[in-house]
């Protein structure tokens, strides 16, 4: 089965550089933190807290890249850019789209 969301090479080199147990812990942390960060983006959108929005998107971007989830990382980067511009109105459905991609990444990570 192919992994359309996660670059296997990235995840393999991470495992090679560390070990399986550590990668498991890292994935657990990512899956634990990401829903909070997504919630943080939604909350800060409501309160117009541009900095908090940008920071949450930034963390998601960085973490997704660490696991080779480059599509998800790119989607977070777009959200981060919106945060940087300060124009939170233009977020639109982008958080929903991000969350949909995240669901795929989560599934792949859990089934690996």
């Amino acid at each position: 089965m192919t992994s359309p969301e996660i670059d296997k090479g990235t995840l393999d080199s991470l495992t090679a550089a560390t070990d399986e147990e550590f990668v498991k812990e890292l994935i657990e942390t990512f899956l634990e933190d990401s829903p909070n960060l997504i919630a943080e983006m939604r909350t800060s959108l409501g309160t117009h807290d541009v900095e908090a929005f940008r920071r949450a998107a930034h963390t998601l971007k960085s973490n997704a890249a660490s696991f080779g989830a480059f599509g998800l990382s790119q989607s977070a980067k777009e959200l981060e850019m919106i945060g940087k511009s300060g124009d939170l109105e233009s977020v639109g459905d982008k958080i929903d789209d991000f969350e949909a991609t995240y669901a795929l990444v989560e599934k792949e990570l859990r089934n690996r």
Binding site: T29, S62, N63, S66
Partner: peptide, 13 residues
Amino acid sequence: DDNKVNRLLLGRG
């Protein structure tokens, strides 16, 4: 670092 994933990665290395 405020990001736990980064703290774990850096700490490990």
